[in-house]
């Protein structure tokens, strides 16, 4: 069998795909959060950052496509593996008083996370789709704001004149065009998260993502075979810490918006 067919057709191969695509997506999640955090440096910072990203052109598309590929592989492998798992064990035990892995009570998050990976994963996927529709495709019907379309949020990208400060001054409504003008991400975020239920949904989803990661980040090391009893503590701590930091980082934005800090 060739390398590719082994990777795609065997259980361990698929676990590798799962781990590697997961690692890639984790990288994206980290970078995305760092990008988000620029919002605390003021509107100019985040808008400028967004403009920089957009200016990358083909590179941006390569990144987007590989992200999409990783998501696809991650989800495909997850569904494949979990349907195999369902088939491998059709019966549950009647006599179960407590789960067999209750010895891991001390790591309650990770144990819970481990048992629910497929569910947290699917919910995150659904959220990601919504999130894209919300901020990337800017579908006005789902942003929870009457008659406001993010498609109209643009800013001046050069300093020209007294009152006009680059990346913070909005272009008049109806002026500006995707790809030509800088997008007013700051305004999008603040008005977007101003809708309380969207923020709540976001916080819950990010919470799930971090629960997913608290197990995934440590299982990843197991799947590619670099975990051991000796390094396990460190790896688990890394996974949990990373998940918590991500949670804090991501959630800080909607919270700040809701409480009026932004």
């Amino acid at each position: 069998m060739s390398l590719a067919s082994n990777i795609f057709n065997t259980s361990l191969g698929r676990k590798y795909l799962m781990a590697l695509s997961g690692a890639g997506l984790f990288g994206f999640v980290v970078v995305h959060m760092l990008g988000n955090l620029t919002i605390f440096a003021g509107p100019a910072a985040i808008n400028q950052y967004a403009a920089k990203l957009h200016s990358l052109g083909p590179l941006l598309w390569i990144a987007r496509l590989s992200l999409l590929g990783m998501v696809g592989i991650h989800i495909w492998a997850a569904i494949k593996l979990s349907s195999e798992n369902k088939r491998a064990r059709k019966f549950q035990y009647e006599g179960t008083i407590e789960p067999v892995d209750s010895h891991r009570k001390s790591e309650i998050v990770s144990r819970y996370a481990a048992r629910t990976m497929i569910y947290s994963g699917l919910i995150i996927a659904a959220f990601a789709f919504y999130h894209l529709a919300h901020y990337t495709w800017k579908v006005p019907q789902i942003n929870g704001l009457n008659n406001i379309d993010f498609e109209t949020f643009y800013v001046h990208d050069v300093n020209a004149g007294e009152k006009q400060i680059a990346y913070t001054t909005a272009l008049p409504e109806g002026v500006g065009k995707e790809g030509e003008n800088a997008v007013d991400v700051y305004r999008m975020v603040t008005s977007g998260f101003g809708v309380w239920w969207i923020s709540i949904f976001y916080i819950i989803s990010v919470g799930l993502l971090c629960i997913h990661l608290s197990h995934g980040l440590s299982a990843m090391f197991q799947s590619i075979g670099i975990k051991s009893k000796a390094s396990q503590k460190l790896i688990n701590r890394f996974a949990l810490t990373a998940a918590l930091l991500l949670f804090a980082g991501y959630v800080s934005v909607p919270i700040s918006v809701l409480f009026g800090f932004l």
């Binding site: 676990k15 088939r87 491998a88 789960p99 067999v100 892995d101 481990a114 299982a219 799947s223």
Partner: peptide, 16 residues
């Protein structure tokens, strides 16, 4: 794989 066993989710029940 051929025998129809499932995959490892690193839950650790086996070890327990």
């Amino acid at each position: 794989d051929e025998e129809g066993f499932g995959n490892c989710s690193v839950n650790g029940s086996c070890e327990a």
